[in-house]
Simulated assay, not measured.
Amino acid sequence: MVTARGTGEPSQGQLLSPVARTVSQARPGDVEVLDLDYPADTDIKEGGTIGVRTLVDVLRVQAETCPAQRFVLLGYSQGALVVGDALAAPEDRMVGPTVGSVDAETLDRVLAVVLYGDPRFVGDEEYNVGSYDVETDGLLPRPDGALDAVGERVRDYCVAGDFICQSSLDFDEEPHVEYYSNGMQGDGAAFVITRLDRVGADLGREADAEPGDADERETPSPTSTPTPSPR
């Protein structure tokens, strides 16, 4: 599980820490948490590019080294921009278009993506959750469908008045930190845990199947997730 912190946040005690902790406690021994090593400073063009390059490299190396490993990606504010751009095609990125891509096989191993206060928020995407205005995008909206490859595994949380994910000239910072106290940390963790449990159940069914029965047994339906709706 990789956390990508927001601008100026520390590695420890960031908004994503309780999310990662809740998931880890729910699946003891199964989860390793890594805070993405990137500047997370105000130079978003340079620092964000470092973040995208680092995340792409982490996913590539881990996928090659640990074939059974799956990935959960968490991002807040600038970290949400980094996570989203790393998963998008280079032509759909705002930062890091030349730093490499996550291949399709590795994308398939991304189990869940949880974003908060995303600068690249797009109001009409089906994976959005919150009190946002569906007709209002973030400050730097990504192209429609840029995350379609992982869309069913994404939750992008945005609240009304958050000028980062609801582009506004009213620079009231209070809504942008509301995620610390409005229950969305717990909601995001629950979504991740549900994804882990469903995949674990699927793997268990595969392990229980008798050798040679692959052609005879019924193929399990693809994993589905509940469709989020604005609150």
Rank of each mutant, 00 (worst) to 15 (best):
S224N: 10
K45A: 14
D37A: 14
A26P: 06
P28I: 02
A40Q: 04
V177L: 13
F163L: 08
R217M: 10
D85G: 07
R120A: 07
D144I: 08
R231N: 10
E210D: 12
S131Y: 03
D148N: 04
G212V: 02
R53Q: 14
D41T: 08
E91Q: 13
S11I: 13
L59D: 02
Q25K: 14
G6D: 04
T98L: 15
G130I: 00
T98Y: 11
A146W: 00
G100I: 08
G13K: 06
R195L: 02
E46G: 10
A20Q: 04
G8H: 07
Q166A: 08
Q185S: 05
E173I: 15
Q62N: 13
L203D: 06
E64Y: 11
V192F: 02
V129D: 02
D30H: 12
D37H: 10
V129S: 02
Y179P: 02
G138C: 00
R231L: 15
F163N: 01
E32I: 13
P175R: 01
E174R: 09
G96V: 02
A89H: 11
R53A: 15
P119N: 05
E206S: 10
V134D: 09
G117S: 10
L73T: 07
D85S: 08
A207K: 13
G47W: 06
T219P: 04
A26W: 07
P97M: 12
Y132P: 00
G117F: 00
T42F: 09
R205Y: 09
G138R: 01
H176W: 00
V72T: 05
L107R: 12
V110I: 10
E91V: 12
G161M: 06
P28T: 05
D124N: 13
